[in-house]
């Protein structure tokens, strides 16, 4: 099994990589936001564009057009607490690109620190990339259903608590995506994440499957949070709860309590 060299890249490292031109930075915000300003030398891949068709063939094309070959160091960022960036990073990783990591902060935080931005488009010359799919980081509905009762498998739902209480995949536990971040980073410090998971009795050698509401963004972030805490065997159920419900798979809820009425929304 290939493991990531690192989950996140900090601002200083990235700035160094920008200086010596040794990185491909992907900005996954919307095109109009990217046009206004972005991290220097970044290229734009709006998440929606990827989600329109994320078949390996299409992703391969996208990667090649973004000038990514098998050896390119890739760093991804967004302005949505790292969830969109995670989904893109994971997709590249699934394609077989191992040298990908997340910028450890959002674009707003980057700007807030007064770091460099730019509004010129980055010129790209396309590259050739291979396909080496990594099925060990992906879960389908069928796979999830098949293994979820196994003792060593833990299914994690990363939606908000109220959504989880209302309905979730039987046996899943809930770690809301907001739990993954710290005040100024998209992911908690490693030790804090480890402590949280240890309190939850999640063994390091468990096979973990994460899911969220629809397209695997929140659970994509959880995928990287788990990676950062040295959990080697994590899968993303990328089509998540929306597909699960669509397939009429079993769902459970917390019964006999009107928890929604306790919410101020």
């Amino acid at each position: 099994m290939r493991s990531l060299s690192k989950t996140t890249t900090d601002a200083d490292s990235l700035r160094g990589q920008i200086r010596d031109n040794s990185v491909r930075i992907i900005d996954v915000r919307r095109a109009e936001d990217y046009k206004k300003d972005h991290i220097p030398k970044s290229v734009n891949l709006p998440l929606a564009e990827l989600l329109a068709d994320d078949s390996p063939e299409k992703v391969l094309k996208i990667a090649q057009n973004l000038g990514i070959d098998d050896q390119t160091q890739v760093v991804v960022y967004d302005d949505t607490f790292g969830a969109l960036a995670s989904r893109v990073a994971w997709t590249l990783q699934y394609l077989g690109h191992s040298e990908v990591s997340l910028l450890d902060m959002t674009y707003s935080q980057w700007k807030g620190l007064g770091l460099e931005t730019d509004n010129s488009e980055t010129e790209i010359s396309s590259k050739t990339h291979s396909i080496k799919l990594q099925p060990q980081i992906m879960s389908s509905a069928e796979y999830l259903e098949q293994v979820k009762e196994q003792k060593n498998v833990i299914v994690i739902d990363n939606r908000e608590r109220l959504n989880f209480l209302e309905q979730h995949i039987p046996g899943a536990i809930n770690i809301p995506y907001r739990t993954l971040a710290s005040d100024d980073k998209i992911l908690k410090p490693k030790e804090e994440m480890k402590r949280l998971l240890k309190n939850r009795n999640i063994p390091q050698d468990a096979e973990i499957i994460t899911y969220c509401g629809s397209v695997g963004t929140l659970s994509g972030l959880a995928y990287y949070a788990l990676k950062s805490a040295d959990f080697p065997n994590v899968k993303l159920y990328v089509r998540s709860f929306k597909e699960w419900k669509g397939l009429n798979k079993p769902i459970v809820r917390q019964e006999n309590a009107n928890y929604w009425d306790l919410s101020a929304e």
């Binding site: 908000e160 608590r161 109220l162 209480l165 928890y259 306790l262």
Partner: peptide, 20 residues
């Protein structure tokens, strides 16, 4: 947001409660 239902509850005894 991290550990409860995204809202807190102010009690009649001046506490703030996080449920669920």
């Amino acid at each position: 947001e991290q550990y409860s239902i995204g809202s807190a509850h102010v009690s009649t005894r001046q506490n703030m409660q996080l449920h669920w």
